Computed example of a mutant assay.
Amino acid sequence: MDKKLRIAGIIAALSFSIFYLTFSSNSLPIPEPLSPVPENNSVDILAENLDEPRSIAISDDRIFVTEKDGLIRVIQNNTLLDEPLAALRPAKVFDGGLLGIALHPDFSNNHLIYVFLTYEENGELWNKILQITESENKLVDAKTIFDKIPGSVFTNGGFLKFGPDKKLYVGTGTVSESSHMPQNLDSLSGKILRLNDDGTIPTDNPFPNSSIYSLGHRNPQGMTWDDKGQMYLSELGPEKNDEINLIKPGKNYGWPEQQCSGNGKYENAIMCYDPSIEPGGILYYSGDKISLEADFVMASLRATNLYQLDFSEGLSSQKTILSGVGRIRDVVQSPDGSLYVITSNTDGKGFPDSMDDKLLRIKK
């Protein structure tokens, strides 16, 4: 498809408005819509009419997108293939279903794909991780490698990513706002999990014989690592106090006892959003194709922007890279340094147009 994007409000890199953030003591205004740009040679539409897309994974020549109702879609040669790679059967709940997707670090040789799936069993909601083997865009095999993560109608987390250590990291959500399971090391709710690629528990995890890497999370949405190997997590708050956290092994991030900061027993967020902007996927940009003033890029749903972020001592800044396309769910970097994002206007909270949702490529 690879059509040039002609949507009002697309803002090329470096034509930004800026505002500054401190912790939750100050309110953060939601950005006003920016002036429309009738044509933008920096952004392409690669796919349209995606149905509630949730996550993106990129190989050298293909892009994989999960749709909440159970499809894994494939974009190859800038074209959305008619047939999905897989059609799974998740639970039909508001913010659960087929969520995160990650490719094995050796995907080009072993063709292994990992997905996070919400399902129902005997009236209870659970989440599990599937390892899928594909060949020529067809499912060859699928098996559960990790199971019985507590599920929820609204807060499942569900983000998957392989870290620099080639371990699989998984963000899980809390089952309810009143639940204290995120503080319980006997529960997988409200945690970051760290797994081997076969779903077994690494021997060097911070808690013996446990998949738990960190605890006290509400609803993780994205994770990334910088060039020093430090892990960052974007996380949804309730109606305010979305967080960006610097994740350290074995540390407690406070939910539900703490939101953002203020209790010495827990780790403080490095950024806090009040009111909520609903952060989505986050990445540390390591390419040189796109000119950015900051190292981090983050999608946002409620604030309907793709931001670049600068984390510094005491004060952080963010600037708009892309706006005017509605809710933005996820962002990834391709091997050539381009950025790919999916919109999320068909998720029940947005205002979709006739061609939503879309996969977009930012080229420069």
Rank of each mutant, 00 (worst) to 15 (best):
M1H: 02
G9P: 10
G9F: 05
S17F: 07
I18F: 06
Y20S: 10
F23T: 13
S24R: 05
S25W: 04
P31W: 02
E32H: 07
V37T: 15
N40D: 15
I58V: 15
I63H: 05
F64H: 01
V65N: 02
D69M: 05
D69V: 03
L71A: 12
I75K: 08
T79P: 00
L80T: 04
E83L: 08
L85F: 05
A86Q: 11
A87C: 02
L88P: 11
K92E: 13
V93Q: 09
G97E: 10
L98A: 09
L99C: 06
H111A: 08
I113E: 10
Y114L: 07
T118V: 06
L125W: 12
K128Q: 14
I129C: 04
T133W: 00
E134N: 04
V140A: 05
K143T: 14
T144V: 15
P150T: 09
S152R: 08
V153E: 14
F159H: 06
F159E: 12
V170M: 02
G173H: 09
G173N: 07
H180K: 14
N184E: 13
D186M: 06
N205G: 14
F207Q: 01
Y213N: 06
Y213I: 05
S214T: 13
L215D: 00
D226T: 07
G229W: 04
Q230V: 11
M231A: 09
L233N: 06
L236S: 05
I247F: 07
Q258T: 06
N268R: 12
M271C: 01
S276K: 14
Y284T: 03
S286G: 15
K289Q: 13
I290P: 07
F296H: 06
F296G: 00
S300H: 03
A303R: 09
L306S: 08
Y307R: 12
Y307D: 11
L315S: 08
Q318R: 15
Q318A: 12
L339T: 04
D347G: 06
S354P: 01
K358T: 06
L359R: 05
K363S: 08
